[in-house]
Design a protein around this nucleic acid. Structure first.
Length: 424
RNA sequence: GGAGAGAUGGCAGAGUGGUCGAAUGCGGUGGUCUUGAAAACCAUUGUACCGCGAGGUACCGGGGGUUCGAAUCCCUCUCUCUCCGCCA
């Protein structure tokens, strides 16, 4: 979340910037400012009363010790009013604090200055396109038919075992999944990312820390019995490693990578959107996460974009990079680049990665700070993450774009990982 | 799942009603000594909020209560550990 002081000191700026995200912040910002001022007034009054009470209590203790019982009892009488005041003020203070927090968590992150205005994904800015558009013969099949034809994904079986959106990968299909995961992890390791294997369920605090809770609760599977959530991305457990942590500047940037299955309810999706591998309830993804200093976070974002670009290039897929417009930017992000590969048989672009800088927005929720060399007071770190990569749509594009009369050709870089070069 | 024990500062660990933001040890930082290092010695070493500042307030797992006063007493929740059971 945004810091209180920042909002109070720059209300106009906040309102103006959030307009780029199509978020009308005027009312909530004004409320926050008013309540914050009131909170400070109450705190001053409350602290003063508490100070009085503390010194009076100390006095009473001393009087008792000296055996001056009468004087002590007289002093006791004086505390009654103070006690009541402290109770009332304390009640008001905590009410107002709750209100303030409720408002704060409703305010999205401020977009970076380079974020274009826009309402939806139609307004995203194409930053660059890479590679040649594939040319497929007339009778080219979409990936869901190819998967069935070569018996590498069983849609019906997943339906039987669990439900729609939970496919079963079989034979070379399963091996290709495993190959992709290992390839992506090895590439991340070569890029200096330390691999972690996080839990696949998280508690409420973690969900709040990265911004899934309280607002996006409906997007996660919730295990009510134990109040745990299935992770929608490894970003959640990996970033939460650093919740409530104060790092040293020399330890930054921290680079982590993790493979994990991801679970998303995707309530409300329908139609061609969810056909085949386009949108699943469970899918595999390798995530990269960095914790950085504010000075370097945008340069690091560029590095992460380069890392993801290289991955897709090595797989031989053509792709484009989009700078998300304000309307398409997520609640917590300041700047996001989406990567889309071209799915030749579907004749559409598919998002396979999203690389974001959250600046200090998540860090503030996480209480993730670092200490600058030689300085006493810790400051908020910046968090970034990106998919590197999400598997299903990469697989979709590989199947569709590499289909030949003989079968589906496996990209050269994957052959050592798969142990085969053709799916037939 | 059953029984018991526990949760204190970066870590270990004392503290059972006031002088406790908290002993002591380790670790960290700065210094003395040394050609350098080690050892030794000295000093220092949590976070947040309010305040221009002096300073004040809060925090001993979370929440509530008793009391003039709570790390300490009471209630409640959560978590951890040990033993037993079950199990990859």
């Amino acid at each position: 979340m945004l810091s209180l002081k920042f909002i109070k000191d720059n209300p106009e700026f906040v309102i103006e910037k959030l307009a780029v995200k199509n978020f009308d912040a005027k009312e909530v910002v004004e409320k926050v400012c008013t309540i914050y001022t009131r909170k400070n007034e109450i705190q001053q009054e409350l602290d003063q009363k508490k100070a009085e009470m503390n010194s009076l209590s100390k006095e009473i203790g001393n009087l008792f010790k000296q055996g001056k019982v009468q004087e002590a009892n007289a002093a006791k009488d004086k505390t009654a009013q103070l006690k009541e005041d402290i109770k009332d003020l304390g009640q008001e203070f905590s009410n107002i604090d709750v209100q303030l927090n409720e408002l704060l968590v409703q305010i999205p992150n401020i977009p970076h200055e380079s974020v274009p205005a826009g309402k939806s994904d139609e307004d995203n800015e194409v930053v660059s396109t890479h590679g040649e558009m594939p040319n497929l013969p007339e009778n080219a099949l979409p990936h869901w038919d190819l998967a069935t034809k070569y018996d590498i994904i069983d849609w019906e079986l997943g339906n039987k075992i669990t439900g729609a959106g939970f496919p079963v990968y079989k034979g070379k299909g399963a091996r290709l999944q495993r190959a992709l995961i290992n390839f992506f992890l090895d590439q991340a390791r070569d890029g200096g990312y330390v691999e972690v294997m996080p839990p696949l369920m998280v508690n409420e605090d973690s969900g709040f820390g990265t911004g899934q809770l309280p607002d996006k609760e409906g997007q996660m599977y919730h295990i009510t019995e134990d109040n745990l959530y299935m992770i929608p991305t490894a970003e959640v457990p990996v970033t939460n490693i650093y919740r409530d942590v104060i790092l040293n500047e020399k330890d930054l940037p921290i680079k982590n990578t993790a493979y994990s299955p991801c679970f998303r309810r995707e309530a409300g999706s329908y139609g061609s959107d969810v056909r085949g591998l386009n949108r699943l309830h469970q899918f595999d993804k390798v995530e990269i996460v960095q914790i950085a200093t504010p000075e370097k976070s945008y340069a690091i974002l560029d590095d992460m974009v380069a890392h993801v670009s290289a991955l897709i290039e090595k797989l031989g897929l053509n792709f484009r990079i989009l700078r998300l417009c304000g309307g398409d930017l997520s609640f917590t992000s300041a700047l996001t680049f989406d990567f889309e590969v071209y799915s030749a048989a579907q004749e559409r672009w598919l998002e396979v990665s999203s690389v974001s800088n959250f600046v200090d927005y998540q860090a503030n929720r996480l209480k993730l700070r670092y200490r600058k060399e030689g300085e006493k007071k810790p400051v908020l770190a910046h968090t970034l993450n990106g998919s590197a990569l999400a598997l299903p749509r990469i697989l979709a594009a590989l199947l569709e774009n590499n289909q030949t009369p003989e079968g589906i050709k496996i990209p050269e870089v994957l052959v050592p990982y798969c142990g085969f070069d053709l799916i037939d």
